[in-house]
Amino acid sequence: MKTIRFELNGEPVTAQVEPHHNVVELLQTMGLRGARESCGQGLCGCCTVLVDGLAVSGCLYFAAQLDGARVDTIERTEREGELDVVQQAFAECGAFQCGFCTPGFVLMTRQLLAHNPAPSEDEIRHYLSGNLCRCATYPEIIRAVQLAARIRKAGA
């Protein structure tokens, strides 16, 4: 067991981890279930979290390596109880069915728009190609990303 300290959704936390624990397993012991393991192989994006501002697959990241890092998950909200622009756009467009993949898609979309505020459809498809939706809501997801980009632009 090793004690690690990191910032989780803006709050300093400490945790006890074994070397073989991955980030999803650690977050679950801390009561956070937004990042969930599905493929366990880096392919599907259901386990997406941000480490020091970069999207990573929680299933392929050793929990011990979070020591000293800033970690953000889907549970972090800008304002208490409110959805952000990307979440609103996903709801508006019905860009999910069961919702299992949605936290990953939302986090990836936030990253995409932060780097590229007006992505083309080709750029959206490439950026999100590492996220899988078994309910196949891909057309709605692409519309949601485009809507989020428009709302962001209007609000900027």
Partner: peptide, 12 residues
């Protein structure tokens, strides 16, 4: 690199 694995893998 644009089509190698995916954004999350390339970040790490």
């Amino acid at each position: 690199l644009r089509t190698l694995a995916n954004v999350r893998v390339r970040n790490v």
